[in-house]
Amino acid sequence: MTAGRRAQPLLLTVLPALGVLLALCSAGQAQAAGYRYWSFWERDGGRWTYATQGPATARPADGAVEGFRFAVSEDSGDASRPRGAADFGTVCAGTDAVRGKKRVALVLDFGTPADAPSGEKPPARRTACAVVPGDATSAEALAAVAKPLRYDTNALLCAIAGYPAKGCGEQVTATAEGKPGSGPSVGLLAGSGVVVALAAGAFWQARRRKNA
């Protein structure tokens, strides 16, 4: 077998390897689905727990502390908690009890710039003490202190205090590294460079043998 003919099987071996490499590069950008939305939390002692029902049906007691956090999350187990300390005495300090009404401390965490929709900037985290009728829901307490609220046709809470201006629970994709749009890792790219260099070197070595 001549050197020129040896080059063909070599390339047939290298090209599938390059195909696998390209597939690995694509895998480096494997997309994990998440959703950009407001999550609803209840304060249990000194910690936040994910609410077991929505704000439209939850009816907090006087002295309750509830939180809302805007973020990109895969599900309730992955959801980001409201940040910062929160307790009823601090949030509702100076708000006297009113007969027939209840006070609900609310923590509104608008999230980080990384969680924000394109072109929007999250407002600063804030707290508010809602004074509402005794049978009011969490949604009514929220409406008392954080208008405008925006809901979709399925009654999903889309915006608090007008944020975000658009969108509602939309799906967001991210790489396995959690960075939207990021490419393969440096290590993977470095590895691909080695494979390509070896393939090129083998090819030119075969050509030199053929011409010798």
Rank of each mutant, 00 (worst) to 15 (best):
A105T: 02
A105P: 07
L106P: 14
L106S: 12
L106I: 15
V107R: 14
L108A: 07
L108G: 10
F110S: 12
F110C: 10
G111V: 10
G111T: 09
T112S: 15
A114M: 04
A114P: 03
A114R: 14
D115Q: 13
D115F: 08
D115W: 09
A116K: 01
A116L: 01
A116D: 03
P117C: 06
P117E: 08
P117A: 09
S118P: 07
S118F: 01
G119I: 04
G119M: 03
G119H: 02
G119L: 03
K121F: 07
K121Y: 02
K121W: 04
K121N: 14
K121G: 06
P123Q: 13
P123R: 13
P123D: 13
P123W: 12
R125T: 02
R125G: 00
R125H: 00
R125K: 03
R126A: 11
R126D: 12
T127E: 14
T127R: 07
T127V: 14
A128N: 11
A128K: 07
A128D: 08
C129R: 11
C129K: 11
A130V: 15
A130G: 15
P133E: 14
G134K: 11
D135L: 08
D135R: 07
D135V: 04
D135Y: 00
D135C: 04
T137V: 07
T137C: 08
T137M: 05
T137K: 05
T137G: 11
S138H: 01
S138Y: 00
A139V: 04
A139Y: 04
E140I: 00
A141M: 11
L142H: 06
A143V: 00
A143S: 05
A143D: 09
A144E: 10
A144Y: 06
A144G: 09
A144M: 08
